[in-house]
Lab assay of single mutants.
Amino acid sequence: DTINITLPDGKTLTLTVTPEFTVKELAEEIARRLGLSPEDIKDTHNGKTLDPSLTLAEYGITPGSTITLEIK
């Protein structure tokens, strides 16, 4: 299953994830792909900052969802 990550420059990154991924694991994968530190990444969905300890499923993030990435 894939989700879309909207980057600060407007580009989109597509990642393969499972509903059990935590937001922290997602940030780590994004950081790895972009050459950043996971601590520099802030993920938001529907205007809410995502708690790193919760899973994508707990936020109702499903395949095809879009998450907005902010760099701290």
Rank of each mutant, 00 (worst) to 15 (best):
K42S: 13
L15P: 00
D43V: 15
K48N: 11
G35K: 06
I5L: 06
T49R: 10
K11V: 11
D9F: 09
T55R: 06
E28R: 07
G60P: 01
I5K: 03
P63F: 05
L34T: 10
E29Y: 12
K42N: 09
T2L: 08
D51M: 04
D1M: 15
R32Q: 07
E25A: 09
T14G: 03
E39P: 14
T14D: 02
E70G: 09
D40Q: 12
K24G: 15
I3V: 07
I41R: 02
V23A: 02
L56I: 07
E28P: 00
I3W: 01
K11L: 12
I41M: 07
G47M: 10
R33Q: 09
L34V: 04
D43Y: 15
H45D: 08
I67C: 09
F21R: 04
E29V: 10
L26Q: 00
D9N: 13
K72A: 13
I71E: 04
L34A: 04
S53A: 10
T12H: 08
G60C: 06
Y59H: 09
E29H: 09
P19V: 06
I5N: 04
G47R: 04
S37M: 10
I41F: 12
I3T: 01
Y59W: 09
A57M: 11
D40I: 11
A31D: 01
P8I: 08
D40C: 15
S37H: 13
K72H: 13
L34Q: 01
I61T: 01
K11M: 12
P19K: 09
E29C: 08
I3E: 02
L7K: 02
T49F: 13
L36W: 11
I5F: 05
S53D: 09
T22I: 01
G10F: 04
K48C: 13
P63D: 10
I61P: 01
T55Q: 03
A57C: 07
N4M: 09
I3M: 03
T16M: 10
L34W: 05
Y59D: 01
E29L: 12
G64C: 03
K48A: 11
T6K: 15
S37F: 10
T12I: 10
N46Y: 10
S53F: 08
T62M: 12
T2M: 08
L36C: 12
R33K: 07
K72I: 14
F21H: 06
L50Y: 11
T68V: 14
P63L: 05
L36D: 01
T44V: 13
D51R: 04
G60Q: 03
D40H: 12
H45V: 14
P52K: 09
P8H: 08
N46P: 07
L15I: 13
T49N: 08
I67Q: 01
G64S: 03
S37K: 13
T12F: 10
R32W: 09
T68H: 14
P63R: 02
T6W: 11
G64T: 02
G35M: 06
L36T: 09
D40A: 12
D43E: 15
S65K: 04
T22R: 03
E28S: 07
I3L: 08
T66Y: 05
P38M: 12
P19D: 06
T68E: 11
L7E: 01
L50K: 03
G35F: 06
G35D: 06
K11D: 07
K24M: 09
R33M: 12
T22P: 01
G60I: 02
I3Y: 03
G64Y: 02
L26A: 03
K42V: 15
T14M: 09
T49Q: 10
T6L: 15
P52A: 13
T16W: 12
P19A: 08
T6N: 14
L69F: 05
G64N: 05
I3F: 03
G10R: 03
L7V: 04
V23R: 01
T44S: 13
A27I: 15
T18A: 06
G60F: 04
K72G: 12
L7Q: 02
I3P: 02
T2G: 05
P38F: 15
D9T: 09
D51A: 04
K72N: 13
G60D: 04
S37P: 12
V23D: 00
L13W: 11
D51L: 04
F21K: 06
L50R: 03
D9V: 02
I30H: 00
N4G: 05
T14R: 11
K11Q: 11
I3H: 02
T12D: 02
L13R: 01
A31K: 04
R32P: 00
L54H: 08
E70I: 13
I41A: 03
E25I: 04
E20G: 07
I67L: 11
L13Q: 02
G10E: 02
A31P: 00
H45Q: 09
L34R: 01
P38W: 14
N46L: 12
K24Q: 10
I5D: 02
T62Q: 10
F21L: 12
T12P: 02
H45W: 15
I30T: 02
T16F: 12
K11S: 12
L50D: 03
F21V: 07
L13M: 11
S53E: 09
K42A: 12
I41Q: 02
L15V: 12
N46M: 10
T12M: 11
T66C: 13
T68G: 06
P8Y: 07
G35R: 05
L69P: 01
I3K: 01
I30Q: 00
T14N: 06
K11P: 04
I5E: 01
G60Y: 02
T18M: 05
P52D: 11
F21Q: 11
H45Y: 14
L69R: 00
S37Q: 12
L50V: 09
K48I: 14
V17D: 00
D40L: 13
K11N: 11
L50A: 04
K11C: 12
I41L: 13
T2Y: 12
I41Y: 07
T62K: 07
T22K: 04
L15G: 00
K72T: 13
I41T: 02
S65R: 02
E20F: 11
G47F: 15
T44I: 13
L13S: 02
T18Q: 05
T66R: 03
G47P: 03
T14L: 08
G64L: 02
H45N: 09
T44C: 15
L7M: 11
L26I: 03
V17L: 07
L15D: 00
V23W: 15
V23L: 12
S37V: 11
G10D: 03
T2P: 05
P63G: 08
T16H: 13
K11Y: 13
G35S: 06
E28M: 12
T55W: 02
D9K: 05
V23G: 02
E39S: 14
D40Y: 15
D43S: 15
P38R: 08
S37A: 11
I61C: 06
D51G: 03
L69W: 05
V17Y: 14
T12R: 09
T66H: 07
V23S: 01
K48Y: 07
S53C: 09
T18W: 13
D43W: 15
D43P: 15
L26D: 00
L34I: 06
T62W: 09
L36E: 03
T49K: 13
S53Q: 10
E28I: 11
T16G: 07
S53I: 04
R32F: 09
L13F: 14
K24P: 00
D43M: 15
L26Y: 03
K24H: 07
T16P: 10
N46G: 09
T68Y: 14
A31W: 10
T62L: 13
D51Y: 04
I67P: 00
E58A: 08
E70P: 07
T44N: 09
L13K: 01
E28F: 10
T68W: 13
I67K: 00
E29I: 10
I41G: 02
P38V: 15
L69S: 02
A31R: 06
L15A: 01
T66S: 07
